[in-house]
Nucleic acid binder design. Structure first.
Lengths: 209, 209
DNA sequence: TTCTTTTTGTAACGATCGGCATATTATTTT
DNA sequence: AAAATAATATGCCGATCGTTACAAAAAGAA
């Protein structure tokens, strides 16, 4: 059968370009002109490939999630819950301020649509955040079963705490905080972490921040 | 001199109505139609009173800030830095999920424009957040001078930590977290607080969350 | 070459955006 | 009552929104 005229653009590169636009301007703030110019194609090509602006955004979201899968898998495999928390918060602190110059600081899941008109995008993004929080919660439930966390620990609260902290750090990054400042915040947040055995040392004296 | 035809709407009530719209839909997501319908006036009246959509939003921001002045003044007057932190985080936790049914959960400073096109609104909102963070920092600097906080404590980091935590809590609220859940997160966050004297107790055992 | 298929570029669609010109209505002052 | 003033309602402005018809262009298959 015939193959037709070949595409003039790479789908993955197009998604990366679109991701930058959504990240910087938000979902509703990103116009089709912004997107097509960033990708370097005309709108009919974009609609043929992704269906709609929302379809393009969902494809971008998938790509964004895929890039973080390795990060999440790695930290969830940590031997102790505390190390999970440490890897999570410090990992977020690491990439929130410095995204390699390609994307703006902060988090796509926050920047692109906390509120945007009557769109369902905010709910979609909230669902994504909730999924990551659930992954943390399940890991902490296992930690309680294994005695890694005290019996009195509440996995849901711990996961929500980390999730909130991560979101707060992202907002700090978007407001211009440096990587060093974000790590200081992360370290301080981890001082609240419950330890089964030895008494807790204040991070203030431990790292003199 | 003549006084002309009297206004058909109350400015303050109009601002409250507009605040709800901006809060729920974000700055760019809130259309003039949304705003005029919510207020119950026609657009020329709105433009005569506030100049533009941006002017209306700035007026809403002022009103939003004014409503929180009492809250901030109260907590900054607390005798110790830890109590400042406690009042701040728990205060945020309190009004983030339950705004009295008038406004959506979350924080206007976050909901209305983390990212929105080429507008300068996000920067404006970031500036407002930075101001509150600066108020906390100055209070903690005083606490270090007064010996209320250990010499090794970093007021900037503590303020940034609380600000990030507050933002994270707001996002949690916007995602549907209950007031109880938010207070649990706030209590956990406060377990990281540096104490000069007695050893720190894990909040996990203290409140069994 | 001719046919088929797919993508491309051009151009335009209706809808909605924020904003405003104009004229009418309501009130106070003279 | 007449003039002056200010806010009202109606209707429309150009621009931009996301989206799509349409036909030319580029490839493989016949």
């Amino acid at each position: 059968m015939a193959a037709g005229r070949p595409r003039s653009f790479c789908t993955e590169k197009a998604l990366d370009s679109a991701m930058q636009v959504f990240w910087r301007k938000g979902y509703e703030g990103a116009s089709m002109v912004d997107l097509t110019e960033a990708i370097g194609i005309n709108s009919p090509s974009l609609y043929a490939a992704f269906g709609s602006k929302e379809g393009l955004f969902r494809a971008v979201l998938e790509r964004y999630d895929a890039r973080r899968i390795a990060f999440m898998e790695n930290l969830l495999a940590a031997p102790t819950a505390q190390e999970v928390a440490e890897r999570f918060l410090h990992g977020v602190a690491e990439f929130a301020a410095d995204t390699g110059g390609k994307n703006p600081p902060g988090c796509l899941l926050l920047q692109s649509g906390l509120s945007c008109g009557d769109s369902i995008i905010p709910d979609e993004l909230a669902r994504h955040r909730a999924e990551k929080e659930a992954a943390l919660r399940e890991r902490f439930e296992r930690a309680v079963r294994e005695g890694d966390l005290p019996r009195t620990a509440n996995p849901s609260t711990l996961a929500r705490y980390l999730s909130a902290m991560a979101n707060g750090i992202c907002i700090q990054a978007a407001s211009g905080a440096s990587t060093k400042e974000l790590h200081e915040v992360a370290a301080l947040a981890l001082a609240a972490w419950p330890i089964s055995g030895e008494p807790q040392t204040s991070v203030m004296e431990k790292e003199s921040i």
